[in-house]
Design a protein around this nucleic acid. Structure first.
Length: 269
DNA sequence: AAAGACACCTGTCCGC
DNA sequence: TGCGGACAGGTGTCTT
């Protein structure tokens, strides 16, 4: 489910409610997520939250006693609710703060994760070798073009590889390629630097727009206040069964790397 | 080293 | 109304 815009939306929604708060209790109702929730998480009772950071699709909650690394997987979401409010189905983790509010982590498919890190979580093995943030200066045409050299994989698969660039999932990969008029099947090594420039700009534009809309809600994503994201109405190709908004041709659906790809074969070359 | 398949898990939707 | 199958926003790991 959540790609970079949804994770960033979650971070912005949670931040004012968690920073500065003291953790009163941690309730792990279901420890079997993608990896078992480590017992050291319980060491964070009594800790004070210092900041909430995003790196790729991970949320890093820094406290004065260690760090939590959260991932929302395909179906995860996080909300702030009154401590007393009853939990709903698949609400696996509850962290209660000193002001009687609580953070709830819900994840029906359990592809998400909560990990503990004593020191700098950016050095954790899952994060240490990630590519640049797509909205940073480091992600530019020269960089992408260089990483495309000698690669036979389709450009869509390549931009979804977190070791190339982080945060781009299936929705925004499809949308970015539509916006830059590039066929998703194009071999990465055959894309000119000029087209890399167009693609980089499209990725940044799509992600910025999606963040400003609170992300994309297809089924179960919700922001930290429970509202859906509104970017779904801005999608040009992802999940579309009708015709291209630009030329009227029927949107095509193919499979790449076991994922659905949507594109317009007239507009995208 | 790179590319592709597979695994993890639950819910929803569609056709019969 | 019920059932089987396909599909879903991710990504580490294993196999070619």
């Amino acid at each position: 489910m959540p790609e970079l815009p949804e994770v960033e939306t979650t971070r912005r929604g949670l931040q004012p409610h968690v920073v500065g708060r003291n953790i009163q209790s941690i309730d792990i109702r279901q420890p079997r997520l993608r990896w078992p929730v480590p017992g050291q998480i319980n060491n964070l009772v009594g800790a004070t939250v210092i900041s909430l950071q995003r790196r790729a699709k991970y949320l890093l909650m820094h406290t004065d006693k260690g760090h939590m690394i959260w991932h929302l997987g395909m179906s995860g979401s996080m909300r702030i609710l009154p401590q007393q409010q009853a939990s709903v189905a698949h609400e696996h983790i509850q962290i209660t703060f000193d002001n009687h509010t609580s953070l709830r982590y819900r994840d029906p498919r359990r592809f998400g994760a909560l990990l503990f890190c004593k020191n700098d979580p950016l050095q954790h093995e899952l994060l240490a070798r990630l590519g640049p943030e797509p909205l940073s200066e480091a992600f530019n045409a020269a960089y992408l073009h260089q990483r495309c050299q000698g690669r036979n994989s389709a450009i869509k698969t390549l931009i979804m590889d977190s070791h190339i660039v982080v945060g781009i999932g299936n929705i925004y990969a499809c949308e970015s390629l539509f916006l830059s008029a590039i066929n998703p099947k194009t071999r990465a090594g055959r894309i000119s630097k000029q087209r890399c420039q167009r693609l980089v700009q499209a990725i940044k534009e799509v992600l910025r727009q999606a963040i400003s809309q609170g992300g994309t809600t297809l089924q179960d994503f919700s922001q930290a206040d429970g509202k859906p994201g509104y970017f779904a109405q801005s999608l040009h190709v992802y999940g579309q069964q009708g015709s291209c908004s630009r030329c009227g041709s029927k949107i095509k659906r193919i499979t790449q790397g076991q994922r659905s790809t949507f594109y317009c074969s007239t507009c995208q070359h």
